[in-house]
């Protein structure tokens, strides 16, 4: 393994060349499986609806969908506790829903309405929830990495055992500030889990065309940061790796990198013609590795749920998504006076 050896480095690092070649992973319990199924389905259906609403002109600007990558955020979130922080880039709808943010508030922000999480001033790429520990939603590729490192710095400064999860993509992994952050995180032993969501394409550029070293789990090697490559389509594998990484950080060992091998079914953004890959490639991943279908199959196979049970979950999820869409359609736009609010906070005198 190419990662620099650190004392007490997690030894369980598995790095299959292909997701399908993974070893055995600890199973989820029945409750965890059902909950993961529901959470992933919510993201899938929400994103489908967002895509539809974009097509109808209700959502403007850039809109980056998370369809296909659902297992990553849902599995990671299973390892967190209150007080932990989450931060990501612009493909952020899934992260917000996984953090427990209200789909209505998220959808209303996508449509630029007054009860959106940012009162309509942030949009798809810029949403936050202080209450849920979600620190954005950042539109500049890679900029969330120093910020997430700063969240980890704050935990260490305060002497608590909270960690920060900093998500970024295979494209952002080539930004210089990522390595500036790695250096400080390791130097100061900050509790930062870096999750590289490797969905194989930075916009239209495949990983191999942009990266001299395509094994992103080794990107911390020169700083001595351990890394693992994880099957990001299997929510069990994600949760398993998440627990290892989060424990490693909570125990004061410094940062850790998890490279999630995942795949986005949709284009980079809504206006992506997706000419850089074949439809067959997308269909193959979809048919063979779909993160939701995997859980669904197991639930049925092990008789943890019947078709009817799952239909009920589906219906509930669909209702929640439809409700969010209806809310986001009729909620008024922000009042014109909002133009000049929230630029500065009033100083305490």
């Amino acid at each position: 393994m190419a990662v620099a050896k650190d004392k007490a480095q997690p030894s369980a690092a598995r790095r299959p060349d292909k997701p399908s070649e993974q070893g055995s992973v600890p199973e989820l319990s029945k409750e965890q499986s059902v909950s993961a199924y529901r959470d992933m389905l919510l993201i899938r259906r929400f994103e489908e609806k967002a895509g539809q609403m974009y097509g109808m002109g209700l959502i403007g600007g850039f809109c980056h969908l998370y369809i296909g990558q659902e297992a990553v955020v849902v599995g990671m979130q299973m390892a967190l506790k209150p007080g932990d922080g989450v931060i990501t880039g612009y493909r952020d709808h899934g992260h917000m829903l996984a953090c427990g943010m209200d789909p209505k508030g998220v959808m209303a922000e996508l449509t630029g309405r007054q009860h959106g999480y940012s009162r309509g001033k942030g949009g798809s790429m810029h949403m936050f929830s202080a209450e849920k520990g979600f620190y954005g939603g950042h539109g500049i590729v890679g900029a969330q990495v120093p910020l997430g490192t700063g969240l980890a710095f704050a935990s260490k400064y305060r002497g608590n055992d909270n960690v920060s999860l900093t998500y970024f993509g295979d494209g952002a992994a080539n930004q210089g500030q990522v390595y500036e952050s790695f250096n400080m995180a390791k130097l100061w032993k900050l509790p930062a889990v870096y999750i590289i969501e490797n969905n194989q394409y930075a916009m239209g550029t495949s990983l191999a065309r942009a990266s001299a070293n395509t094994d992103l789990s080794t990107r911390g090697a020169s700083f001595g940061i351990p890394g693992e490559r994880v099957d990001g389509m299997d929510v069990r594998a994600v949760k398993d790796a998440a627990e290892r990484a989060v424990t490693w950080c909570r125990e004061g060992n410094g940062p850790m990198i998890l490279e999630m091998l995942t795949y986005r079914y949709r284009g980079h953004s809504m206006s992506d013609p997706a000419k850089y890959r074949t439809r067959d490639e997308v269909e193959k991943v979809r048919n063979e590795q779909d993160p939701i279908e995997q859980v669904r199959r197991r639930l049925l196979e092990w008789k943890w749920a019947s078709e009817d049970d799952l239909k009920k979950i589906d219906a509930k999820v669909r209702d929640a998504v439809n409700e969010s869409a209806e809310f986001a359609t009729v909620d008024p736009e922000p009042d014109a006076s909002e133009l000049y609010t929230d630029i500065y906070a009033q100083a305490a005198r």
Binding site: I87, A143, G150, Q177, E180, S181, M184
Partner: peptide
């Protein structure tokens, strides 16, 4: 004391500020 890494430590400082420091 930080390394010579302005982009990085400025961003780290902002992250710490978002967390309330």
């Amino acid at each position: 004391d930080t390394p010579i890494t302005e982009h990085g430590f400025a961003g780290l400082g902002v992250g710490a500020a978002l967390a309330g420091l």
